[in-house]
Amino acid sequence: MTPLLTTLLWHDEFDQPVGTGPDPRKWVHDLGDNGWGNKELQTYTNARENSEVVDDPAASGGRALVLRAVRTPAGGYTSARLKTHGTYAATHGRIEARLKLPQGQGIWPAFWMLGENINEVPWPACGEIDIMELVGHLPGTLYGTLHGPGYSGAHGLTQSLVLPDGAVFAEAYHVFAVDWRPGRIDWLLDGQVYRSLTPADLPAGAPWVFDHARFFLLLNLAVGGAWPGYPDATTQLPQEYRVDYVRVYRLD
């Protein structure tokens, strides 16, 4: 049964002036070049080159936020990683975003959530819900993953979905979401559930850490990493990850 989405709890439509950055009342920039635990190559910045609002007639309000991965003159890479840690965190609901994804070898966009208590309860015990990940050499394949104590990293609970007829996610916007309830998380693409998990799906003895915790939201565009691999001669840069909106609804 499709839930009624009657109460909007939090949102960003990215309708601020063209050329401005993400709303600092909602989003915090993660900065640095430490590989982020995944052997990534990019330096995350707060420069407008890497994150800015642009005109986009394909976006529902005519504007979108772009996260942009760029090759530097020295041969490195810059990009952007945004989070709502300290500004907003959710407990249950539909968490969704309308996104147009980049592609190419070594390109890795994500829309995901982490437990708000991560500084006190280190990952993976804090929990992680990956609503959308894409590795750029498979531009038509979506991954949704759950990480927690006893099921993290390469042992995370992952499922993929492949667009039909050779379509790729760089061609058009799609809506990526989770419906998060006590004891159950459903992953959706364009309103259709494609996988579900409950505590019964966890490895024996592993705890479900998603019922009473608050989770903050993240959007990022990585370059390289142990999972997607690294850019090669086929990789075209810059690459753009476009965000039409991010919304959180109560599930009625």
Rank of each mutant, 00 (worst) to 15 (best):
G136I: 01
R81D: 00
G61R: 15
V168P: 00
V70H: 04
G61H: 15
G150K: 08
T91V: 09
G191D: 10
N119P: 00
H85W: 12
F176T: 09
H85C: 03
D165N: 15
L217Q: 09
G191W: 08
G127M: 05
L188P: 11
P3G: 09
P102Q: 02
G156Y: 03
D211N: 15
A233Q: 12
A59N: 09
E240R: 07
G191K: 11
I107Q: 03
P3H: 10
T158F: 00
D211H: 13
E40A: 07
R247V: 01
P124H: 07
T6M: 08
M1E: 14
M132T: 05
L4P: 04
V28G: 05
D15F: 09
I129P: 12
P139E: 02
K26D: 02
E133V: 06
Q103A: 12
E40L: 05
Q103M: 08
Y173W: 07
L138T: 12
E52Y: 09
N38A: 08
A154M: 04
T45Y: 02
H155Y: 06
V175H: 07
Y245L: 04
E40G: 07
A97N: 06
I185W: 13
D130N: 12
E96S: 13
I129M: 12
A154G: 13
P22M: 04
R195Y: 07
R48I: 07
E133A: 06
G205Q: 03
E240K: 04
E120L: 08
E128Y: 05
V70N: 14
D244P: 09
G32S: 07
P109V: 01
T84M: 04
G140V: 02
T7K: 15
G62V: 05
M1L: 13
V28Q: 15
T84S: 13
A204H: 11
E133F: 04
V248M: 05
G225S: 04
D15Y: 09
C126N: 13
A167D: 10
D244V: 05
H11F: 08
R242G: 00
L134K: 11
E116P: 08
G150Y: 04
K83F: 00
R81M: 01
P102V: 01
H212W: 08
W112D: 03
D252T: 14
P207V: 02
L138I: 00
P139C: 01
Q103E: 13
T158W: 02
V66P: 00
N38D: 04
T43S: 10
A226H: 12
A204M: 01
P228K: 04
D12H: 10
G156S: 05
L161E: 06
P122F: 03
Q239N: 03
T158A: 11
A110Q: 04
Q105P: 01
P182C: 12
D23L: 08
H147N: 11
Y241F: 07
F169M: 12
N38C: 05
